[in-house]
Design a protein around this nucleic acid. Structure first.
Length: 410
DNA sequence: TCTGGGGTCCTAGGACCC
DNA sequence: TCTGGGGTCCTAGGACCC
């Protein structure tokens, strides 16, 4: 049966939310950035894009492209709030809403067409309500599957509405560049280009066995992508799988060489990972430490623990143990801590008195921090840390209001 | 004055056990 | 006085997404 899928992509989401919140920013070139010393541009307003300011640029590059660029440090709470409001609107038209990221969603409206008339009408209603309630614009793609809907939403920006009808698929794909397909990144594009493949039309005509030999399992998928075929269902939030890992990493304001500086950073990261894991109610068996050197070479080392952990102190000890097994040969630019192989935490209290006390103290600390903000209460050694180095400068467009999802597009 | 941070999935090789 | 093979767990790295 033919499905009707909508993909909704908010236009310059973070920047638009900031412009709505502060009228003085409207109509101006602005860029939303992180709070760290070596941050990048997360989102540029359309006014800024006109000057060539792009996501991923350094602040300095952005300023060079557009000297009057206004920089705004991102505020996740604003975006989360806006995102939740938008998702509420989606749910008025179908229960099948898959929140793909903080500013993107797929809707399966196959069953809602009878009630609302047509896909275009639903799309127009959604656009007008988002504009009216939040002052934001979005681009919507309508197509028979997720791959094509996502492709369509990208075709007209900002404030676009693009339909790819089943009978138009072959024609559309013929001239679509492969890099426009969700799932074909820079590396794959380069490899395909070397094979003389530039459009989906080229991809479809290329022999599948050769693709399979070159790309393995992905090879077959690539062929289907080129055809515009995609059977992946829209998976509503309730059915989304459990989170598989919890991690934090940070690019330091300056490269570190001193062990005590590195340890302090690891403690801070371990605390952020632990607290989030405890909030999710999960424990991890594997701890991974990631290191990036000055010259950008990046590597990770992981170690399975004897049992499942989520106390900051336990994570910290594991991270330090891994650190001690490495010989650092350059100053450190980035550090990351992650736990994986997760399981749900049971209710049982630790067996030993000392462990029970540690768990209880952690719980009290979490409550204070959850209520009053990050790092109000924390380990003693963190208190020497500079104010600006503390806290979570997490600003990630892929971050989801409620947990994490499966990105699989097969 | 270079290059963020949150994730998922896949591959490949080694250890270990039967 | 032989050299197979399957299953599982673990580790490292890379591609991709927003």
């Amino acid at each position: 049966m033919t499905r009707t899928i909508l993909h909704i992509d908010m236009n310059a989401f973070f920047a638009s939310v900031e412009q709505q919140a502060d009228p003085a920013l409207r109509g101006k070139p602005i860029a939303v950035i992180g709070s760290g010393g070596r941050t990048i541009i997360t989102t540029a307003s359309y006014e800024a894009r006109a000057f060539g300011v792009k996501t991923g640029m350094t602040v300095w590059e952005g300023k060079r492209a557009c000297p009057e660029l206004t920089l705004v440090v991102g505020d996740n709470r604003k975006y989360t709030h806006a995102s939740k409001e938008i998702v509420k609107i989606f749910r008025d038209y179908t229960p099948l809403v898959e929140v793909f990221s903080i500013d993107e969603a797929f809707l399966d409206i196959t069953g809602s067409l009878g009630l609302f008339g047509s896909a275009e009408r639903i799309a127009m209603l959604i656009k007008s309500r988002i504009r009216h309630n939040l002052g934001l614009t979005c681009s919507i793609g309508i197509a028979p599957n997720k791959l094509l809907a996502k492709l369509a939403s990208d075709m007209q920006k900002p404030d676009g509405l693009t339909v790819i009808r089943p009978e138009e698929v072959t024609n559309t794909m013929e001239r679509t560049p492969i890099k426009d397909i969700c799932g074909i990144g820079r590396k794959t594009e380069r490899q395909l280009t070397l094979l003389g493949i530039r459009t989906c039309g080229d991809l479809v005509r290329f022999p599948v066995p050769v693709l399979k030999k070159r790309f393995g399992i992905i090879g077959e998928r690539l062929h289907l992508m080129g055809l515009g075929v995609d059977d992946a269902p829209v998976v509503p939030d309730e059915e989304v799988e459990e989170v598989k890992s919890v991690g934090h990493s940070t690019t330091l304001d300056r490269d570190l060489t001193e062990r005590r500086d590195i340890l302090r950073c690891l403690l801070q990261l371990s605390e952020m990972v632990g607290r989030r894991a405890r909030r999710y109610g999960v424990q991890g068996k594997t701890v991974t430490l990631t290191v990036r050197y000055t010259d950008f070479t990046t590597f990770s080392r992981q170690e399975s623990q004897g049992g499942y952990i989520n106390l900051s102190d336990d994570i910290y000890r594991a991270a330090v143990a891994i650190l001690d097994s490495i010989e650092l040969v350059q100053p450190v630019r980035l550090l990351g801590v992650r736990i994986s192989s997760l399981r749900h935490q049971g209710e049982q209290l630790p067996l030993f008195e000392s462990e029970r006390k540690k768990a209880l103290a952690t719980c009290v600390m979490d409550n204070v921090n959850n209520r009053y903000g990050d790092f109000m209460v924390t380990f003693g050694s963190l208190l020497e840390t500079e104010e600006k180095e503390r806290g979570s400068h997490v600003i990630a467009p892929a971050w989801r209001p409620d947990g994490i999802r499966n990105v699989d597009v097969k």
